[in-house]
Amino acid sequence: MNTKINFAGIEMKNPVTVASGTFGYGREYSNFFDLGKLGAVITKGTSLKPKSGNKPPRVCETASGMLNSIGLQNPGVEYFAQNDLPFLRKFNTKVIVNACGSTIDEYVELCKILNTLDIDGVELNLSCPNVKAGCMAFGSSYDGVKTVTKEVRKVLDKPLIVKLTPNVSDIASIAKGAEDGGADAVSLINTLLAMKIDIYKRKPVLANNTGGLSGPAIKPVAVRMVYQVSQAVKIPIMGLGGIMTGEDAIEFMLAGAKAVSIGAGNFADPYVSLKVIEGIEEYMKKCNVDNIEDIVGKVEMN
């Protein structure tokens, strides 16, 4: 049984990664298990300069999921390089840095620095719904995605994954923008723009009013989008959104994802990613799959 994959040039021991913003820089969860069991760790969204994030409340629970409006709080790339990267490098796993900025120049400057670091790839966050400038603004049009991707590509030799927002009407064309801009892969989905109201206060629960929805509630939307994107681009796809079990992961892979990522599920169960890896292996045994890559995109439409 072979669970190895090559994802956009990144050799992973299995297709299971942990999603940006839900695993910090790995430290906290390394108390629970060896991070070397994961295909890759994707870091918290990291920017050129430190960011302190949005006003609280920043999170709240919703049906089978949660909203967040963290606002990309992070210590900045310099701090990351000095403190978090050496720690992550102690584990036999791949390190992918989620990169965010508010202008094209910022993305480019950041990626110039990332290009010099001992990391395995960059995930360009063009999809955060919780910050005013940048991110989702670029991620919402074919041209925006293509332009940023193209500029970053010029300075980045490492594998480049572009993370897409689902808050668009035609996800396939957005993915095409990434491919045409020179991305090696796309990842989807980021959170769905959402809102929860406290009916007694008659105010939104989150201080930011809106936030991003994640968790099992969004899985069917994510699976549909992964399928649509798989029909539109040739580059590999990282699928995510509500994955909690091996079955969930397989569903994404059948829809066209070569790798998967686990986000908010980590909060419910710190061991969820290991359980997903085991679940994938069980499915492979049960269904006589020798090579995990063999099931990618193998859904047969009615």
């Binding site: 913003g21 839900t22 695993f23 910090g24 906290e28 969860y29 918290k44 994030g53 949005n54 006003k55 609280p56 409340p57 920043r58 999170v59 709240c60 949660m66 967040n68 963290i70 709080q73 629960v205 908010a264 980590n266 909060f267 710190p270």
Partner: peptide, 14 residues
């Protein structure tokens, strides 16, 4: 404060 992970990962309970 409202929390996500309880571990300092999600940066929710600011």
């Amino acid at each position: 404060e409202k929390m996500g992970c309880g571990l300092g990962v999600c940066l929710g309970c600011a």
